[in-house]
Design a protein around this nucleic acid. Structure first.
Lengths: 211, 211
DNA sequence: TCCAGTTGGATACCTTCACTATCTATGTTA
DNA sequence: TAACATAGATAGTGAAGGTATCCAACTGGA
């Protein structure tokens, strides 16, 4: 198909598609002439993936590119892909020069018995949050996070269960990315609702009156 | 203290503080003369809160303002504050005209037995994620989300437990905000690490070699 | 009392991001 | 062959989040 059809079927404007091509988010089409190229279903799929990542999850274009690059590099390596592609995401982008809370994160990971790469960005993200909360006078130490860690463990079980039974390694990698990244806003939304529920339950007065 | 001291103690530049004052994130100081105002510890605390919300969590300035406004309006209402301030956050800002997946979210909430306000933004966020995953060919329905919902329930229990034993309603409100919002990146980080761990466990070859 | 330095307030400017518009040379299609 | 589509390049746009500069009013030390 040509670019206009790709645009029509994806709902993304031609100029934006050109922008994604320029930025390397979308691989170029097969050139058929100096001013003509042919796109296929893969491009359409990729385009939808890009829109989901940037739109739903709110990832920046450059983060999305990094993610897609990682995805392309590591296909055929099944589960391993997951950790690697995830490593490409950074929520906050400054490493802030190794927070002193890193030691606490080490302790937490050790206590949980997890095997997590030392350079995983998630470690820094966690340390940074601890540092922030502390500077705001919230005395949260790693012991408090332990039960959260146990729950995260069970969440991860559910996540990986979803990948079982898929044969094509390319598809495993893509689905892993989708579930890992796109499910995040959904899980946060669930947590919000659960909090609202639990809060009204404890307070026993708020919220819409029960039937 | 004057603005320069506020700047020095918070690590935020004077011009940026003025910007926050303009944008209404920070209440004005007590005017002592036409070109002089006095700031106190509350301002410093508020400034740190703003930096945590925008920096660590990546909230926009306008969302942060909405959140702080909600916080100020509802103090003295304890638990109720939590649901209300949380309602002020929106992850993705377009409601996208009621996704057809809204019915599924209703079913999920009903099955979980939760009491969640019908207009809670989390509902729309969840519906949008379902719609996106579906358009990408991931057949995720609300039954799949049920176990995630149960885990979210337990997370919410932990969240609200942290508010127990705090007397000052102002402090309860602020801590609720901090835990609800700032803990999010931490929980996502934990999930990432748990996934990496579980992935290497199942694959039994990746990751750094065990001792 | 003078005066360098600080402050509040206003306005203009800057940079990044994610697009969007326009242009040209080349193709395709009726 | 004329109308339209296309690739690729370059420039422009609007929002967000600050930053810089001015100015008049104030402060604190010599």
């Amino acid at each position: 198909m040509r670019i206009s059809e790709l645009s029509r079927r994806s709902g993304v404007s031609v100029t934006t598609i050109k922008y994604y091509l320029r930025e390397g988010l979308l691989p170029p089409g097969r050139q058929t002439a100096a001013t003509q190229a042919e796109y296929d279903e893969q491009h359409l799929r990729r385009l939808r993936l890009i829109r989901a990542l940037t739109g739903v999850r709110g990832l920046s274009v450059s983060t999305t590119r990094d993610l897609l690059d990682a995805l392309a590099r590591h296909t055929g390596d099944t589960h391993r892909t997951l950790g690697l592609t995830l490593g490409a995401i950074r929520l906050a982008d400054e490493p802030t020069a190794e927070a002193p809370e890193a030691g606490e994160v080490d302790a937490l990971v050790k206590e949980l018995g997890w095997e997590v790469h030392q350079s995983a960005p998630a470690r820094a993200a966690l340390a940074e949050t601890l540092a922030s909360l502390r500077s705001l006078g919230v005395p949260l130490d790693w012991h408090t996070l332990l039960p959260y860690g146990r729950l995260a463990e069970r969440t991860a079980l559910l996540d990986l269960d979803q990948l079982d039974g898929i044969e094509d390694p390319l598809e495993v990698a893509e689905r892993a990315l989708l579930l890992a990244v796109l499910l995040e806003p959904a899980l946060l939304a669930l947590r919000r609702m659960a909090q609202e529920n639990e809060s009204s339950r404890r307070h026993a007065d708020g919220g819409p009156q029960p039937a």
